[in-house]
Design a protein around this nucleic acid. Structure first.
Lengths: 109, 109
DNA sequence: CTGTATCCTTTACGATACTG
DNA sequence: CAGTATCGTAAAGGATACAG
């Protein structure tokens, strides 16, 4: 029992455990267009608080979905970016985007 | 202002609003293999309580993702099923399943 | 069996103050 | 700027009892 985490046997449960909450989904959405600073992420997800954004970024870093790069400047700059692994989520989000557009058309009718 | 719902302009935000929580994702996962009774869904998602399962099923029915069919028998039987719209989520879950399997392989190494 | 209603607990979240 | 720490609130969720 020296595993990093208890992994559910079901692959869908696995991905839900990693990105199955709306904040992480929003964060990934925004990072798919390139690396972002902390403040940029806040702007892109206005409803999220600083604390919750930090929490989710830390968890995603821990899980290997994103990387965090600190530039030792004054004032400090921190860039968040999808890891190679995180970037493999792109096709899923492409499908979600298409689906979302379709749904929007449906309800507008 | 006679819309069914306020729709976020971003398609990804739209789909997150509809299925962006783990319970709904689990429910869809289970319904992708065919219609299920209430009790079957509970068995498939052991961590969910009756109350929360009901809440999410009602919301998903409202959003047109699933259908609910009551058979007037004794004891009563209720079948939940993906709607045509809900079934169009299938490709997304196919990708998620593949991704989850890959992640499982990664962390086992 | 498939719920609803109620109460209670736990968790998520927000607001504020403060720091390197 | 990008956090951390603390505290208070709101929302989510669980347990139980009960009904059609």
């Amino acid at each position: 029992m020296i595993q990093k985490k208890e992994l559910p046997p079901c692959p869908v449960a696995t991905i839900i455990g990693l990105i199955g909450n709306k904040w992480k989904l929003f964060i990934i959405r925004d990072l798919l267009t390139g690396s972002k600073r902390f403040g940029e992420l806040r702007k892109g997800i206005p409803e999220i608080s600083q604390k919750v954004l930090t929490q989710n970024l830390r968890a995603m870093e821990e899980d290997g979905i994103i990387t965090r790069k600190v530039y030792p400047e004054v004032p400090p700059r921190v860039e968040y970016e999808l890891s190679d692994l995180g970037d493999t989520l792109r096709p899923i989000f492409d499908l979600m985007r298409v689906w979302g557009r379709n749904y929007q058309k449906l309800v507008k009718e």
